[in-house]
Amino acid sequence: MLGSGLLQGLAVTAKNLVGSFHDPARYTTVEYPEVKEQLPESFRNFPFLVTDNATDPMGALRCVACQICEKECPPQCIYIEKSKDKKPDATGKPQLYPAVFAIDTSVCMSCQICVEVCPFDAIKMDQEFEIATTDRFSALLLNREQLAKPNTYFHQIRPTEAAEVDGRLTAERKAAEEKAKAAAAAKAAAAAAPKPAASAVPTATPAATAPTAPKPAAAATPAVPTPEKPAP
């Protein structure tokens, strides 16, 4: 009969009207600023730089300024300037570090490709999404001081991935240590060589870091490996 379909539709809407008061499957609204949903672990927003030391973020950046992310970034929103000097990385190898590392978040499209291509697990995706500002130029252009966040924060937002990354890094470190030990032992065995006078530490004393950055202390990295012996 004409109208039965309309009545059916009215019944559906009436059911939803009532259901929205008691049925959480129907009423799915979360009233945002008061209630915040738990973000899924893989949620990604903008990149941040992982630093291994919260008290001295600039000294313990994992980034070695290899510029792979800069090249691979689809919208070209990363800008990196290499440092002139070197300092030891997590495995103790003397590495370059970024003197300037800037991400223009107004250009960034949160694609995570920088994270995927980074061989050093130095750049990761953040979950901070309340980043509205009233200044669309400088406030959205993040420099390395703003980008650097400690590894503990990474653990906090993505426990699984961070644990995996840490495991991998420790393994690498261990491997490097053993290699160094083996090399040292070999060297010692080969010829009672003179004590290594120069470690990598002094070379890392920065001469030309960014002025705002605190001076990186060589022993700041939590798991400081034995300084690598200089190559004979």
Partner: peptide, 13 residues
């Protein structure tokens, strides 16, 4: 508000 509830959202609140 009624439209909102029918559509399973709170409406202006």
């Amino acid at each position: 508000k009624a439209l909102g509830r029918v559509q399973n959202r709170p409406g202006p609140n």
